[in-house]
Design a protein around this nucleic acid. Sequence first.
DNA 1: TAGATTGTTAATCGATTAACAATC
DNA 2: TAGATTGTTAATCGATTAACAATC
Lengths: 209, 209
Amino acid sequence: MEQKDLMLRLMKYKRVLLQFKSLGLDRVYSNNLGDALEISAALVRKDFSHFKIEGNRRGGYSINKVLGRLNRLLGDSGLQEIVIVGCGNLGKALLNHDYIREGFRITAGFDINPSQPELNNIPLYPLEILKPYVLEHHIQVGIISVPASAAMQTAEMMVNYGIKGILNFSPLQLKSREECRIHNVNIGLEIENLFFMVNQAEKKSNELS
Amino acid sequence: MEQKDLMLRLMKYKRVLLQFKSLGLDRVYSNNLGDALEISAALVRKDFSHFKIEGNRRGGYSINKVLGRLNRLLGDSGLQEIVIVGCGNLGKALLNHDYIREGFRITAGFDINPSQPELNNIPLYPLEILKPYVLEHHIQVGIISVPASAAMQTAEMMVNYGIKGILNFSPLQLKSREECRIHNVNIGLEIENLFFMVNQAEKKSNELS
DNA sequence: TAGATTGTTAATCGATTAACAATC
DNA sequence: TAGATTGTTAATCGATTAACAATC
């Protein structure tokens, strides 16, 4: 959890700072960032000092300076290429979105049986092409949006072809391994969790009254 | 984090136990569950003992007994109804999935301009219908799958109509409030994070060689 | 019995926060 | 200077783990 949370925070700092900047601001205080991320100002300062991001004891932090440092830390590694395996509705939804601002670009979709040759200017290939494509383009990260029944073998394939990171949208929980990090986005679990918390909150407010 | 993580673990226990059961097993050991969830066996026992879920010092835990207890804890509250606001590709993808096994059901989709009257037997309504629908059906949880530009006002509406939990798929980070829990699923952030971790792992292996 | 697994205590570990001196 | 904010230390807090006695 630790390292992952910290890095997610750095990415969030970056996004918030870019927003502030686009609003015309030059400097921020630790408590501005704390408010935006819903964390304490102390934690912001701690994070920054951990990475030698320095501010001014009166004037807070220079947005540009912090952004520069964050880009170096997060690897301002240009536009990264990713692929999507599984071009049903979910895959198409992801293909339709423009992620370029977020630092990556979906360059191809794969499906056992693509319903169309391209979508949003991104080519859709049959699954057989995945291996040569990944090898040729040195793809490091991919998205799985196939049905649960195909998820395991899809992941297997992707790992075999050398993919190092997978975002898995299938309901099947996949395990990370040494050679490949897998993040599971389990929509059902999230909803179930929301219901639980909502019910909790209700119980609590009933107790009070 | 604390409570939320614990509850997510309980849900994962439940899912894994259901799988084990469907495989014909009767009993499990703490280390089976630990392996499945990628946590330590000690944590499993701790969680169980915290909720007075008892096992047998030699024979592990009875799957049925644990499941019974988990259902009571998690609120085996029948099939819950949820709605989706935003029926573009992502919304359609979610509408197409059958979540009944996961304990809830999407009963309606809403869009400023629905492209079709129904999908997967679920009616799609224009946004004006959202308010009466939510009130009449006592909807507690909803999904936001609208573009970033519409996300904030969509959430505002939903909260006003009395929705208590939102799963937000738009790239705009929304804040939870007292009256309504919001979970953000930020795909861009997840991918960015994967790239970071992949690069980290690479660096580390380069250092070793 | 011998062996294995639970249940629980105490130890560890790490993340977060409080608080305040340094300083702009 | 007076006031405000950083940078950092020490304290807190809570989650996780190690370890082992209890016991099936």
